[in-house]
Computed example of a mutant assay.
Amino acid sequence: MTVASGCRRGCRAIVLIVVLLGLAVAAAALWGWQRYQAFQSQPLPGLHAEQSVQVRKGDSFHNVLTRLRGEGVTAGRDLEWQLLARQLDAAGKLKVGEYALEPGVTTPRSLLQNMRAGRIIQYRFTIVEGWNMRQLRAALEAATPLLHEATQLDDAALMAKLGHTGEHPEGRFLPETYVYSRGDTDLDVLQRAYDDMDKALAKVWATRADDLPLTTPYQALTLASIIEKETGIAEERPEIAGVFARRLAQGMKLQTDPSVIYGLGSAYDGNIRRRDLTTDTPYNTYTRPGLTPTPIAMPGRAALEAATHPAPGDALYFVALGDGSGRHVFSATLAEHNAAVRAYLNRMRRPPLPEEEAAAGQAAQTPTGQDDKASRR
């Protein structure tokens, strides 16, 4: 064997080794790439319902990853998470907030994309039309994960905290559904609700009817709150507003039961007695003329619209129909009204007809938060 042939064989061996090493490196790279692709696109294992992770102010990516590990996320090596964060331009750009970890849905890629875009978990709190301030406070105290800063504040301190010192809180917060995120407080929600009511009231007041017997937006708010408590039937609100507007214009007492109930406060046990109608309080519209000194509930947009745009007509009275529908009979004269009241009382004394039972059942399935009663106007 010559030296040349020995060199050739050695070179071939070296080339073969290099090729094999290259193939091994390529195979390892392919395996690593496939592993990385699988890591970033497969749902995170081990998650449970309603699980989440927070990005807090000042967090580094390492802090967030550590918090993820604390939530039971074992998928992926730290290096893979860091590589994915750089690839998505998310490292150092994660938005503060709470992010959902949804079983079978959340992948490392989708999670980091959400954190980069700030797609945080949002919660909802609804102020119901016709709630009074006591009911609103109770609902806020039960709302989670809302932070509670208003619980220990009385009404005066609460309004001062919102920047409206001296204002009565009743009626000041617009019934709507408000979105908030973890870390928000009840004061944040109330501030938005106050601002929305302010805007809604200003809008309807600016376009109010020319002959409206009201002189201030606050009077419109107060009347709207009474209308809100009188009926849950949308198309009746302008008619009821018309009755009250004509009564105010003619100097008649409003004689509205919801105001009496509000004046009774915690003493109200579900029934209005004759002594309740004759016992004077600032909210007894049977003993005092004009509007109540403050709103008696939180009126919705429809009630605000009705109060400032009452329906025309000549009705001065109304009484519940008493058939379970929540509707009313409107009358122009006291004689007509008394006849309608007698019909209501007769209907209440006899067993209901099958169609009335069906109507009552249907009404019960659609709660309105309103009192189903005969108005004594």
Rank of each mutant, 00 (worst) to 15 (best):
G6L: 15
C11F: 15
C11R: 12
I14W: 15
V19T: 14
L21R: 03
G32H: 13
A38Q: 15
Q40Y: 04
L47R: 01
E50S: 13
E50C: 04
Q51F: 11
Q51R: 08
V53E: 03
K57I: 05
G58V: 09
D59H: 11
F61N: 10
L68W: 10
V73F: 07
A75K: 05
G76F: 09
D78L: 11
L83R: 15
A85M: 14
A85V: 08
D89L: 06
A90T: 04
G92I: 03
K93N: 12
G97H: 07
L101T: 08
L101V: 11
P103Q: 06
V105F: 13
P108E: 07
R109A: 12
L111Y: 11
L112V: 07
L112A: 03
R116A: 12
R116C: 07
I120Y: 04
I120V: 15
Y123L: 06
Y123A: 06
R124T: 10
V128K: 07
R134N: 09
T151K: 10
L153D: 07
D154L: 07
D154M: 09
D155S: 12
D155M: 01
A157L: 08
A157Q: 13
K161R: 14
G166W: 13
E170M: 01
E170Y: 00
G171K: 01
R172I: 02
Y180A: 08
Y180C: 07
G183M: 08
D184M: 15
T185K: 10
D188S: 09
L190W: 08
Q191K: 14
D196T: 08
D196E: 15
M197S: 02
L201T: 00
A202E: 13
V204Y: 02
L214P: 03
L214A: 04
L214N: 01
T215V: 12
Y218A: 09
Y218G: 00
Y218W: 10
Q219S: 06
A220E: 01
L221D: 02
T222W: 09
A224D: 00
E239W: 06
A241I: 04
A241L: 10
A245V: 06
R246W: 07
R247I: 00
L248R: 00
G251M: 11
T256E: 06
D257V: 03
P258A: 01
P258W: 05
I261Q: 00
G265Q: 09
S266T: 11
A267V: 05
Y268G: 04
D269A: 11
G270M: 11
G270W: 11
R273P: 03
D276N: 15
T278M: 11
T279F: 06
T281S: 15
T281V: 05
T285W: 03
T287F: 05
R288I: 03
P293T: 02
P295L: 05
P295N: 04
I296Y: 00
P299T: 02
G300L: 03
R301M: 04
T308G: 02
P310K: 03
Y317P: 03
S325W: 07
F330C: 06
N338R: 12
A340C: 10
R342A: 15
Y344A: 12
R347P: 03
R349D: 14
L353N: 05
E355S: 11
E356A: 06
E357T: 13
E357I: 15
A360R: 14
A360N: 02
Q365M: 11
T366Q: 15
T368S: 11
G369R: 01
Q370R: 13
D371F: 13
D372C: 06
